[in-house]
Amino acid sequence: MARMNMIQALNSAMDLMLGRDPDVVIIGEDVGYFGGVFRCTEGLQRKYGEHRVIDAPIAEGGIIASTIGMGVHGLRPVAEIQFADYIYPGIDQIISELARLRYRTAGDFFAPVTIRAPCGGGIRGGQTHSQSPEGIFSHVCGLKVVMPSTPYDAKGLLISAIEDDDPVVFFEPKRIYNGPFDGDPDKPATAWSSHPKGEVPDGYYSVPIGRAEVVREGEDVTILCYGTMVHVAEATAARSEVDAEIIDVRSMVPLDVGTLTKSVEKTGRCVIIHEATRFSGFGAELAATVQEECFYYLEAPITRVCGWDTPYPHAFEWEYFPGQKRLAAALDQVMSA
């Protein structure tokens, strides 16, 4: 076991997979010699060579398209998109090609591509370094979509993603790369070293895609969350009189409906929180699923706490970020319903 932050855990996953499987290659802007702008691939080119940890031209469309070709030819590429906000030049290749290749060829062709993309705000990145576009990709049939909230899950899920024969879009909440963040920007930063899931095995293990995790048990209300919001939810619950059960969804597609419904059937109440904008966001899918599966158990309307339906602003970042205050109010609201 070692103490790792999320960057080190992701690095460790890629290191391991490059070592175990000669077909694994990494490609992306600045990932090679430099080790990535967030340093997730640091040292990997030195260790595995520039033919396996490959610097790419600045062309997300080209990066995705070429990984499809590589995948079809038997490699297992991991593409890094420097910021999730810059994934859009590759979106036609993702939606029309990568996601549907298996279906349109009746399984004769497929591309086991993992797309890593740092997402989320809280870093003063303005509208083009803060987005959470998971809902755009969860809407596409044929893509698996995941977002870890801890170093342990980040490594285990990335290993699963690389081993998966289906394409996986792997979102990394960059605000918690270096430590858990509970939504309060005025508090001193905390490190992963004091978090139980900052303990990460050095060796191989995996966290299965498609499984949510109950991170706090409670009786009154179920909070569905993922990424940075898991930590916001934990901090909110710790201060609240409401006994919340917190579920880290982890995998948007496929969704672990069983874990979600089991919890809501117990608590009878559900609050959903994500950083992405609300309208047509992934929370809508969660709410609809809970409503369909647990309607007769519900004692209050399902409530969503989300980013406002505007681009992510630079100046009013903390007014925008769905923090503890808004979540606490939502908990009170569902309890008084």
Binding site: G126, Q127, T128, P313
Partner: peptide, 16 residues
């Protein structure tokens, strides 16, 4: 500075 006279009204990072 994203201040009260910012032509982008605080919506963009510096230099945009």
């Amino acid at each position: 500075l994203s201040n009260s006279k910012d032509m982008c009204k605080g919506r963009q990072m510096p230099i945009m």
